[in-house]
Design a protein around this nucleic acid. Structure first.
Lengths: 212, 212
DNA sequence: GTCTATAGGTCGATAGAC
DNA sequence: GTCTATCGACCTATAGAC
């Protein structure tokens, strides 16, 4: 074997990972129905035969993509050292972490949109995904409790509502940027406006949470 | 012709409208790539031949669907008698109108999501759509100006930012409801929670706009 | 009703690892 | 020698188009 082709020995893990990487990018790019198994195969260093060998069919491949994408997310909120921060700072930090995460994972945001077009039927079909609790809400609940006790947050704030507002802002900014730009000629992902939006999200949530 | 088949006389407008209605529902349901021309034809009272006769091909049919869906929206903000309302009330009213509109037009929201997956390429290809200004932002600008003059709104509020926040909330609530429910077991469109969300949106925007 | 391209899915066989 | 990763070719249904 020539020295410049060391990778074409058998390596199941590598092959699987290669397929998953390419499939993630292809499904995120074209949607489930729009993605082509042939195209995925062409972009891997292996063949279509291997896709069916490892993943069975197109849908199972897509579910495997979703599972990896979702589980790769879970650690985000754990980065937050919530108990050593002032509640107001903690909320802003959490909003910023979520903001940054969405910005740096456009494929994930697109996969979520695609999955909503399909009414989350693939998530429902995956035990891994349907049983996936996000720690974000627990973290939020702890922050809100501490803020309430300190008298800085309103009494009726709901963790899941706060999470929803933060997600809505971050998801909309990335997922809907194309139609928004087409209609309003403003690019919500323009780096020049990034700090503005990041601050806006924190301000928005904190203004709402403030005790009156 | 038998007396019980009166509708099969020629009526081009009716045929076109029939095709557009069915196509809207089919594209919104399955996405662009997932929709089937055969299926659309089967659900109309005409034939596939007529779809190609009137619309040329699948993509042009889809663009026609988008054009009708978008232009059907424009009147919403005009319902608001903005100049005879207190600015605070006007903002809340506008948020509620947008909220109600998204809730009552799920097909439109889905079409927008689908179009974002395709990076708004069809909108860009349609002169009608790419030149479509939404009056929402002008209305918002007028309200914000009056609120600023009255000293009740902050000086640095941007109309398009406010529109973005309102849209983000309303779009997320409908477009992402399936994955949100799958992960958090909360249905954001549950009628029992409708008033809560509607009020939350107004509170959120107004808390942010309030002069400090 | 028909044509044609294509897309998802399968088969027989080979070759490297132990 | 067996197992399993790998491969190119092949099959068939279907979807867009006329």
């Amino acid at each position: 074997m020539p020295a410049d082709a060391p990778d074409r020995t058998r390596d199941p893990d590598r092959t699987r990972a290669d397929i998953l990487d390419v499939a993630t990018s292809e499904f995120a790019d074209k949607g489930y129905a729009g993605a082509r198994v042939d195209e995925i195969a062409a972009r891997t260093s292996t063949t279509k035969r291997m896709i069916y060998y490892y993943f069975g069919n197109k849908e199972q491949l897509y579910i495997a993509v979703l599972e990896r994408a979702y589980t790769g997310i879970r650690a985000v909120e754990q980065e937050l050292d919530v108990d050593h921060l002032d509640p107001v700072d903690a909320i802003r930090r959490l909003a910023e972490l979520t903001f940054d995460h969405h910005e740096s994972h456009p494929d994930f945001v697109r996969l979520v949109s695609i999955e909503n077009i399909d009414r989350a039927e693939h998530i429902a079909r995956s035990p891994v995904l349907s049983g996936l609790a996000t720690p974000a809400v627990d973290v939020l609940a702890r922050i809100l409790d501490r803020g309430r006790e300190a008298g800085v947050f309103r009494a009726d704030a709901d963790p899941l509502d706060v999470h929803m507002v933060i997600s809505a802002f971050c998801v909309f900014r990335t997922a809907n940027r194309h139609t928004f730009h087409a209609i309003f000629q403003r690019d919500m992902l323009d780096p020049a406006r990034r700090d503005h939006y990041r601050a806006l999200l924190g301000d928005l949530v904190l203004a709402h949470l403030a005790a009156r």
